[in-house]
Every structure is written in C-alpha cells, then in structure tokens.
Amino acid sequence: MPEVLPWPEVRLGDVCKVVRGSSPRPAGDPRYFGGDFIPWLTVAAITNVSPSQIVITETVGFLTEEGSRHSRHFQPGMVVIANSGWKCGVAKVLGFECCGNDGIAALESLTAADPLFLTYWINSQTERLRSQAAAGNEQPNLNTDRIAGLSLPLPVIAEQQAIAAALSDADGVVAGLERVIAKKRLIKQGAMQDLLTARRRLPGFSGDWEVKKLGELVTIIMGQSPSSTAYNSAGDGLPLIQGNADIKDRKAITRVFTRQVTKMGRAGDYLMTVRAPVGEIATTDMDVCLGRGVCALRTDQRIVYHIMVSKEPEWAKLSKGSTFDSVNGAEIRAFEVFFPADTAERNAVAQVLDDMDAEIQTLEARLAKARAVKEGMMQNLLTGRVRLV
C-alpha cells in the first residue's frame, strides 16, 4: 500500500490573488444604483443564505452601466468572502457575473486550488477569522492581506475535488431537509389560519364558535421579578423565566435560578412574554419563577396554546411603553379570541396541530443530526485527519 503523505501547508495568497470589491460613491446615487445593467453583490447576499447553500444564485440590487464602471467585476465560479461586519468570514462560490461592494473580498486566478474546497475550508475557519477581525475594532474587518496570509493544508487537486464533492453531498442532505421543514411550516401555518378561525371544519363538526375574552378561558398569573440577590447558578430554588432570553424553540430553558419565588408558573402552564417582544408563547415542563417579563396562562385546554401562537402578531397592536413595549394583566384578560363551543372539536383541532408540530420536530431532529454529521466531516476531511485517497 503506497504511503499517504501529509498535505503541504501553503499561504492562501500563494494559490490565488485576493482582491476587494469596490462601491460607487456616493452610496445610493441614482447614476450608479437602481439600474438593470448588472447584479450588485452585497455582504447580505452572502451571509443571509443557509450555510448549506454554497453557490450563490441571486442577489437583490442592480447597478447601472455607469455604476459598473466604478465597481469591481466578479466572474461566475469565483470564491467571494464577506470581509466586514459581524458576519464576516463567510465564503460562497458565485453562480453569476456581478459587481461586488467593498465589504466583499474575492479570490482570483486560482492555481492548483479548487474553488469549492477553498470555500469549505474558509467556512471551517469562520469563527477564528471573526475573532481576529474583531480584535481592537468596533467594526470587524478582514482586509485582503489578512486573508492572503491564511495558512492552509492543501492536498492535490484531485483530493480537493473529492473532499468538496463529499461535503456537497452532505450539504444536499441538509438543504433537502431544510426545504421539507419550510414546506411543512407553511402547511402548518395554513392549517392554523383555517382551523382556528372555523374557515375550515374537521369532519363531523358543525357547532358554533364564540368570541371569548382570554380571561374567561385561562387563569393568568403575571410575573414579578425577585431580588437579584436571590439569583444563583447552583440550582437553589426554581429556574427564573424573565423573557424571551429564557425561551428556546417554544420551551422554557434554565439559565438562572432564584431562591426567592415571587410568582410561580407550574409545569404544563403556557408562558407568554409581556415585554418586548410581546406575545411570544412557550411551554414549560417544570415549575418556574415568573419574572416581570412573562406571565403564565393556566388551562387544561390544549387548543389555547395553538390559538395564542396564531395570535402572536396581534400583540404589537396592544403593546405600549415609551422605553419598550409591554402589556398588562387587564389587557391580557380582555384579549379576544375565537373559540369552539364543542369540547370535542377543541380537542380534535388541537390534536391535528399537535401532530403537525410533532412531524416538524422529528424533521428538525434529523436536520440537527445531518448538520452535526457535516460538521464532523469538515473537521476530519479538511484537516487530512480522514483521507479520501
């Protein structure tokens, strides 16, 4: 069996030329911007797409022909990197000709280097690049010299392409699951709009729906913040839920405990934020202390949870406050919802929506696993720890 040699270390600037985009000045000048001559690539076009999408296929803005003369042209297949802002260090491959602004770097004239391999490698270094860019700067910035000076282990081109193909396959799995989840969420949204307004009825149900005040349907426990002297991380007392920072994926999470329990939420309650952002709904599977930024909705009617999730956008109309938005107990009790009179219909509607949530959660678990698999592949394949030879 032939000996597998380690990869040589090279400077990124030795296998390409690192250039920076150029923005016409002044920004927004109609002589340069808002035309239809050539696409205008911004940092957002690179950083606001899924990490599983390596090739950029579109951007929003365009330049005029005159604007293109005051910018730098990028060609399809080039590696582009966000080199400024708090999301710097993200790399993509261009799928179209465009002009790029000065917050973007690009790799030109690649020699003995595969664009996809370099893109994956740069993305494996994003956090390190951001920490370097942020050192001593209010606005993180990766200049072209810093990018060109990056040292990377570089296998022969055939092995680079094999690695890039393997990681592209992993991205395909991730992207496929992301698309399915997005579709399922849209279906769930449509089902909520239909089933929670009686626009569509489940088979076998034809009873009345009524307008009810929320205070008629649930017991509302407004939060009250304990003294900060009672806070601890040793698990002494109850978890303190103060706002959306203590909520993840619609579930209460434990960050801080308090020995002073001012107002208590019970396992099984629904929690609602009452300070900006107002109206976000979560569940809790544990007893908690309710801080002033939340309230508990206590009921045995599961449909209330789904109704309140569907009503989240409406709370902005009720929120108030000069410093931050908030709602009080009276406003919450007076909040009106459409409610089925038939208990069996309530349970049936809630079950349909619960089943949809369960399906989405199963897909999200598969997505998390697929992302973890890809992360492990990057750590192994881009370092030569595992070889595809």
Rank of each mutant, 00 (worst) to 15 (best):
G13K: 00
T323W: 05
S225C: 03
T283N: 08
G21Q: 08
T111M: 06
Q189N: 14
D287K: 05
M192H: 11
D354P: 08
I187S: 14
N347K: 08
C16I: 03
R200Y: 05
L382T: 07
E210C: 01
R72M: 13
V278K: 07
S50M: 02
A82W: 07
P39V: 10
N380P: 00
R302Y: 03
G61T: 06
L195S: 05
W209D: 09
K17T: 15
T323S: 15
Y270A: 00
L110V: 01
F37N: 09
E280F: 12
G384M: 09
E108W: 07
V49E: 06
D355P: 01
R259Y: 08
V80A: 07
L107M: 12
S319Q: 15
V93W: 06
M377D: 08
H306W: 14
R130N: 09
V294N: 00
Q161P: 05
V18K: 01
R371F: 04
T126G: 04
F324A: 06
R292N: 10
G85S: 10
A112M: 10
A133P: 11
T111A: 12
Q161T: 08
L196R: 02
H306Y: 14
R275M: 05
C289R: 01
P8T: 05
V389P: 01
R31A: 15
V304Q: 00
M1E: 12
G85Q: 07
I181G: 12
L150R: 04
L290W: 02
G237C: 02
R387K: 11
R11P: 00
R130T: 08
M264E: 15
